[in-house]
Simulated assay, not measured.
Amino acid sequence: MTKLTLGAHPFLLGFDQLERLVERTAKSSNEGYPPYNIEQTSERDYRISLAVAGFSEQDLSITVEDRQLVVRGRQNDVGERVYLHRGIATRQFQRSFVLADGMEVGEAVLENGLLHIDLNRQLPDAVVQTIRIKRSGK
């Protein structure tokens, strides 16, 4: 029996990229740091909130790379401190989120140790295309 993949289904033409995207996302699953929430704030709006306590705006970067929202954090060590207990994570991180077509990144706000990134889904224009049928030249 042959395994039927998403990209090979006869009614899903051109979806082989989607299958590769799902595989890439599964392989790049991040560890649990930093923790995050994703909430739907309206019918077409979303918000990703990452817990980044101890990071400043200068320690964080947000980019969109090949339909992926990438959030990176890197803190600069300030002097040499002597910790008796170090329970607050200050390691660098990279957290990626795959964006669907039509998703746009809005503003990002750092507030009370949470980095909020707003997303908006743009509705595609409804297009009806009529294809002209030619006669064969026999």
Rank of each mutant, 00 (worst) to 15 (best):
L60R: 06
I133C: 00
V64M: 12
S136I: 01
E43A: 11
G73P: 07
D16V: 04
G106T: 10
L60C: 01
N120A: 12
L13W: 05
R86C: 01
G73L: 06
A26M: 07
V98D: 10
L12V: 04
T63G: 09
Q122S: 12
F11Q: 15
Y46C: 03
Q17D: 14
N76S: 14
L69Q: 08
F93V: 04
V109Q: 13
I38L: 13
T25W: 06
R47Q: 14
T41V: 12
M1N: 07
V127W: 01
R86D: 03
S56L: 06
Y46G: 08
G32N: 14
T130S: 07
G106M: 08
I88P: 00
Q68E: 15
L119A: 08
G102P: 07
G14K: 08
T25N: 12
V78S: 08
D16N: 08
D45N: 15
Q17L: 15
R72C: 04
A108S: 13
G106E: 03
T2D: 14
A8K: 15
L50R: 11
E111K: 13
A108L: 02
T2N: 14
P10N: 09
G137W: 09
R81V: 10
K134G: 02
A8D: 12
E23N: 11
G54C: 03
E65Q: 13
P35F: 09
P35H: 10
P35L: 11
R91T: 08
L18H: 15
E104I: 07
F11L: 14
R91F: 10
E107S: 12
H9W: 12
A126M: 11
L18N: 15
A100K: 03
I38K: 05
L99V: 03
G106I: 10
